[in-house]
């Protein structure tokens, strides 16, 4: 079986309306892919930056995949949350990005969005806080059922990945 190592870091995020951010992340892959070692989901630390508009998560990623087929190439999905001074969490953004299909070192930026509700929901959100969430978070990395959803652009999640492929050429895969 061809093998793929994803080594790297979820570096952090910028461009969100407030600080004190953390991120829940996961890697979604098709049925032909198996995780041999490493964590495929997690939650980062909460960072409140001192000087810059950049939340540092420095969350290490080291996953070893084996695959029998190319369908369902792995992708990262993110949920960025904001933690306020009372410890309440509010959703700030959803996003996904594919793992690059070439070996080597890659710097990725994943733009995120969040759902926008009706005017009434927006007003109550403004005064009470608490973001709207998707009932089905799979929507983040699937293209079906996205229509009719209203969203708003949020910040960007930064990733630094080093990809090591094994035996892709042996099985005739061209990346």
């Amino acid at each position: 079986m061809a093998e793929l190592h994803i080594l790297g870091q979820i570096v952090g995020a910028s461009g969100f309306p407030d600080h004190s951010l953390f991120c829940k992340w996961g890697i979604h892959a098709g049925g032909a892919w198996k995780v041999l070692a490493g964590l495929r989901e997690g939650q980062t630390q909460v960072d409140n930056p001192q000087n810059e508009d950049f939340a540092v998560w420095a969350h290490p990623v080291d996953v070893h995949f084996a695959t029998k087929g190319l369908q369902g190439w792995p992708k990262f999905h993110f949920q960025v949350w904001h933690q306020d001074t009372f410890g309440r969490n509010e959703l700030y953004g959803y996003g996904f990005c594919h793992v690059p299909t070439s070996p080597g070192i890659h710097e990725l930026e994943c733009a995120t969005w969040r759902p926008v509700g009706s005017l009434r929901e927006q007003i109550s959100q403004y005064f009470l806080g608490g973001g709207l969430q998707l009932r089905n978070p799979d929507l983040v990395y699937s293209g079906v059922d996205r229509y009719k959803l209203h969203t708003q652009a949020m910040g960007k999640v930064q990733l630094h990945l080093g990809l090591v492929f094994r035996n892709f050429d042996k099985y005739g895969m061209e990346c």
Partner: peptide
């Protein structure tokens, strides 16, 4: 919970031996 401040600059020069021989690819 953390507070980020400052940066450290690091330079790496990397050489690998036998990675390719074992079937590993680290560059396109």
């Amino acid at each position: 919970r953390v507070r980020s401040q400052g940066h450290v600059a690091v330079a790496f020069d990397i050489v690998a031996k036998d990675l390719k021989k074992l079937g590993y690819d680290t560059s396109a």
